[in-house]
Design a protein around this nucleic acid. Structure first.
Lengths: 331, 331
DNA sequence: CGGCTTTACTAAATCGGTTTACTAAATCGT
DNA sequence: ACGATTTAGTAAACCGATTTAGTAAAGCCG
């Protein structure tokens, strides 16, 4: 017993496809289909368990009710949580989520974007690692509904949902300086990304504001292809350089460092303070003590969905830039 | 400049749609399209940046190259990590992932399954909270490609990728008993799920094997709608009941309990040992000490994808049941 | 040079829906 | 009782691809 199509239903019942389609779409009354016929069709639909083929619908309507969610890594808690919230918010509006992880690779990102667009997603919510590429440029020119979050390219006009980077980073570090920190190191993944650059700017600013020497040897970059090994090497460097505070530019690198500290330098976990852009639940009790900058995950998700929906509905291009305030968690 | 379709290309070039389609699908030689015409078409394709509409393709071919990934919560690290691996494995085979979180709700799960099937996903990888429902039964009867993981219903024949539950749980608890544990409590979310029942069976078995009294007051169930509050209450109960070991049936509840312990009973974290089914990185250094049963996430993902692909390719129904061995991490 | 094969290509059907334009029959108003 | 309107429905085009069945022209053979 294979799947029935509208055509089958129509044939079985001796009516036309049109009639069936009207009834299915609740246009029966409007289109003057008699109550009797409507009932016959509806009853039969139920009986055979008819389910419409959304692909056919999509082809005709030109809309798939699917949104693409593109991030560097969907298993990173930050992106996973935002993804989950976006999923919920979109679910209420009848949308589904197609996901893709770019691994911070430009080529993969562009391939994914193209595939998603070819699959006719109605919009894209994306934490892009390479905004100024041709693919996104061309989509933007075609007015394709997109919302960028987490990462920005200041030379590229678009809808951005961002979080303030520089100041919060500066203020978080200030807290440690107020408590006596003298030698402050920083660990970051490759900062090709503008947001990360701003976070690092915040770090530099905090130092200069306090007339602390900015030693560029204390600014260590971790290779994101071998995070654990590379972070281990760089963390070792910082500890041997005698830092009392280490600053991190995202949760992934902080989590890795906490693990490394506990595995390799358990005797030092009480002497060092971490400052992390991004928060994780474990920071509430993990050692070293972590001062973190918690991004407003719920707002990011909500705003992304709202703006995207607006753009999809209006069919007009818009360039909204929303900068949300993160929350400092001192502990 | 709107998107060009095959028809537009054909018109622009004064050839037929058929010819263009053949060339696009590399059937030019086979179908006797002259090299010259092929080149003309390919050049023009490149020039205008033609991208095929996958929806139209899907409608015609009856396949979408999309797989549905359905889990209780995509932001749970266990499901997020498996999801990520599945995404990568499927990516190589040209598939994409449509995701859905069921929140352990039967209705939402069934709605999601139906929507995914209507969207013509080619298959489903699912950690179902309600396997024996009509929707899955009916899909199974229709031979729809599905792979179940993490959760099982012994009365329902299907493709399962599972992890041994009872014995590993028993053995993990045995370790604590060997070290002198006397009063062992358990915290679990509502175990409507067979796998969780088996884990609890392992707990009971460990106790009876060692002639320890099984006190059913020490088996506490947490309401999964209010995990934090409920876990707090139940954990308090166990601590006041003087347990020296607490067993957890999944990572989510363990993580919550670790947080609660550190927040509310920091003085006790050294006296109590946790046993957790599922592993998390933080267990490597968090307090209380955690003995965990690490599921082989990579294997689960790989097997799920392999079996699913096999089922999709073969078009025949299969009922494979693979039970993987988890790894005990003692610490 | 007439018939057969090969080359190079195309018209039209199809997938499963939606929608526009149309018609036949029934009902209404006067 | 006759034209106008309403009721109840249908045929066919369309969305953008794939694929089958076919054709016209050129090439080949004896």
């Amino acid at each position: 017993m294979k799947k029935k199509s509208i055509k089958d239903i129509a044939q079985d019942l001796g009516v036309s496809k049109t009639t069936v389609s009207f009834v299915l779409n609740k246009k029966g009354d409007e289109k003057n289909i008699s109550k009797k016929t409507q009932k016959v069709i509806l009853d039969y639909i139920k009986e055979v368990g008819y389910q419409p083929n959304q692909i056919a619908k999509s082809l005709k309507n030109g809309t798939t009710n699917t949104i693409g969610y593109l991030v560097p890594d969907i298993s990173n808690p930050f992106y996973a949580k935002i993804g989950r919230m976006i999923e919920d918010l979109l679910w209420e509006k009848g949308y589904h989520l197609l996901i893709g992880s770019t691994d911070e690779k430009k080529e993969k990102e562009e391939l994914l974007i193209n595939m998603f667009v070819n699959r006719q997603v109605d919009g894209l919510i994306i934490a892009s690692c390479f905004i100024k590429g041709d693919v996104l440029k061309s989509l933007s020119r075609q007015n394709f509904p997109m919302v960028f979050f987490d990462r920005e390219d200041p030379d590229f006009l678009a809808n951005y949902i961002l979080v303030e980077n520089k100041n919060p980073m500066k203020e978080a570090i200030q807290k440690t300086i107020d408590k006596g920190a003298k030698r402050i190191g920083l660990l970051s993944i490759t900062p090709d990304v503008y947001s990360l650059k701003l976070r690092i700017d915040g770090y530099k600013q905090a130092l200069t504001d306090n007339a602390l020497e900015y030693d560029e040897n204390l600014l260590r970059i971790v290779d994101h292809n071998h995070i654990k090994e590379s972070a281990q090497k760089e963390l070792k460097y910082l500890i041997e350089a005698g830092v009392d505070v280490v600053v991190f530019t995202n949760n992934q690198i902080t989590a890795t460092a906490i693990w490394l500290m506990n595995m390799h330098y358990p005797e030092k976990v009480k002497e060092i303070t971490f400052v992390s852009f991004d928060n994780l639940d474990i920071f509430d009790y993990s050692m070293p003590r972590v001062i973190s900058i918690a991004q407003p995950i719920m707002s990011i998700a909500r705003q992304s969905v709202d703006i995207l929906e607006e753009v999809i509905k209006s069919k007009e291009s818009k360039n909204t830039r929303i900068e949300l305030k993160p929350k400092l968690i001192e502990r």
